[in-house]
Design a protein around this nucleic acid. Structure first.
Lengths: 335, 335
DNA sequence: AGAACGAATGTAAGCGCTTCCAACGACGGA
DNA sequence: TCCGTCGTTGGAAGCGCTTACATTCGTTCT
């Protein structure tokens, strides 16, 4: 119907066609109350006819703010981050702002991308191990409101974490209650602050109980890595229980145990972290994380910062909950 | 360290401090080749010192494009959409553009939000049942490049779908091969074009085979709804096989069967769709969807449109793959 | 030596919007 | 009747950037 390469309709054309000034158009399309009702209607009608779609860039420039927030996360493939992002998006959208996302996942120029993102938003949250502290500090230094998620504090920036250490202690206590005395820990504390906290709490709890804590058996964060590491580990030694850094690793370990002809929890107990959907169906004992709440909380905190409400930085720690299923040991003959 | 309420550093300050014009700053920070090396270095140094973060709004306005793409999806909670978004983000980022997301999930003013989003991007993809065709048409009408994902075509807009009908036939054939002759279909074809396609293909395949196809047992798209619907269904009747519109519904149905003391696939066979992670661990026969590829393809197609490369609209159908596990019936005694 | 050229940089005009301030009438009160 | 007021609208500046075009100034060529 319409011609090719149509230039977008601007406020000027609407103004001309409606026989008013651009100021009036601008007002009619927003302020409403400042412009007479008939004029307002006419302008809106013309805007509609012309399919006028105001350029947000123009508005952003004029208003001096983007009305958009960013979020940086390592990946979206696990259920973990997706939930967090969703919780974030929900709240941010409710505040009338848009959401820019950036996955750094093994992107070579992550720092650059984050810096670029910083120029498009009024504030952003940065999750876990995505970019170097240096980059975070640099951005914070420009005055851009920032919230860190599941990542140790950098300078004076707000931080939100889950209580990994606490749940690690709960988990350790539960495992000890089952009578387990020899352990392995699958995951790399250096790879993520979450894992570091989990391992630290776990180690501490065992030490407190007079049990010798294991060194971590380092492996990446996915099912495949968990499988490989567990297979190697279990064919070499046989701990009472294998504590995995997250559910995906545990799922891999479960498969490895099965392939080695080992029963879980009969021959070896197994636990995860995060309580992803698959954990429920594999009866995996794990730790539930309030992912959605994590994202939502970050969004709200960031908004306070953006509007200059929040005064001093306060770290926030969200509670976690131990989910006992059957992979950790027999509970009244259920298995 | 620095004062409160610092106004962001602009290109003017950098220019002044470096003793050059803003044009030179702009060039030094990008063109590079047009400005003498020493000047370039000096400018970059000053920009660094001042923590200059160029406002993307200014640039967008000057260049007449946002260098950002949008994506609209219903939800992110299932693994399905998350993967699609991730595939999309990956490609878009590689093209040097940013990604704006919008989840419409039961948001009352979805249409408005999508319209607003349209003013911030150079193009966007719209998934499944998020907004009315009317809204899509309205946006397409403004000339904004658009790609539809898992949604029936609207006007002359590009569309990308997965081959639901084809896989539905494969699935039906497989089920018939197991000797199943009475069926139920759990899911609402009116709720999503994907489900509609699945049901249509399934129904057709049964009809072709001379088997009476069931009417759909309508239910929402989540585990809980699947559980409720299946529980009701299975306590009323006993089909040989229950074909579920997606894995989450199937997971609910599985639980329902278990609670009713029914064995799967002994008493009733069960299948899903999507091949989410949990499906693997519940040994659910399902249909694998190339979600990541879906997002990536959409991103590329959109980019062609934005750059005016693509000429005529072509619908794209991505292949799916039947994943046979054990929930559909016994395969050489494996169960 | 003077002209022609090219590299380096500056000038300034926008990009599309918001909003302060001024202008303009119509109206009511003194 | 005149003026102050208020409701409505327009004029115009300016947000921070890019870029076409102009300017400047060494070089080189004749």
């Amino acid at each position: 119907m319409s011609g090719r390469e149509r230039r977008p309709v601007t406020i000027y054309e609407v103004a001309e066609r409606a026989g008013v000034s651009i100021a009036t158009v601008s007002r009619a399309l927003r302020d409403s109350e400042l412009v007479a009702a008939p004029t307002r209607r006419r302008v809106q009608q013309v805007a509609e006819e012309l399919r006028f779609r105001p350029s947000r860039a123009g508005r952003a420039l004029a208003e001096g703010q983007h009305a958009a927030n960013g979020i940086v996360f390592p990946d979206l493939s696990g259920p973990y981050y997706a939930e967090v992002v969703l919780g974030y998006e929900e709240v941010v959208a409710k505040l009338g702002r848009s959401v820019l996302i950036l996955a750094t996942n093994g992107r070579p120029n992550a720092a650059e991308a984050v810096l670029e993102l910083a120029g498009r938003v009024d504030g952003m949250v940065i999750m876990g191990r995505t970019v170097a502290d240096e980059v975070v500090a640099r951005i914070a230094d420009t005055g851009l409101p920032l919230v860190l998620l599941a990542r140790p504090p950098v300078g004076l920036v707000d931080t939100i974490m889950t209580d990994n250490e606490h749940s690690a202690r709960d988990l350790a206590a539960h495992l000890l209650g089952h009578g387990h005395r020899t352990f392995a820990f699958l995951g790399d504390p250096d790879e993520s602050p979450d894992v570091a906290g989990r391992y630290a709490g776990f180690r501490q709890a065992l030490t407190d109980a007079g049990v010798d804590p294991p060194d971590p058996t380092r492996c990446a964060f996915d099912v495949r890595a968990g499988y490989a590491a567990a297979r190697e580990l279990l064919s070499r030694t046989r701990p009472n229980a294998v504590v995995c850094a997250n559910d995906e690793v545990a799922l891999g370990a479960l498969q490895a145990a099965e392939d080695l002809g080992l029963s879980v929890p009969g021959d070896v107990a197994l636990t995860g972290w995060d309580d992803i959907m698959a954990a429920r169906y594999t009866r995996l004992t794990t730790v539930h994380q309030p992912m959605r709440a994590l994202g939502a909380t970050a969004a709200r905190r960031l908004d306070e910062r953006i509007h200059g409400v929040a005064t001093k930085t306060r770290p926030d720690v969200l509670p976690t909950r131990l989910i006992v299923r059957t992979s950790c040991g027999p509970h009244d003959r259920e298995v």
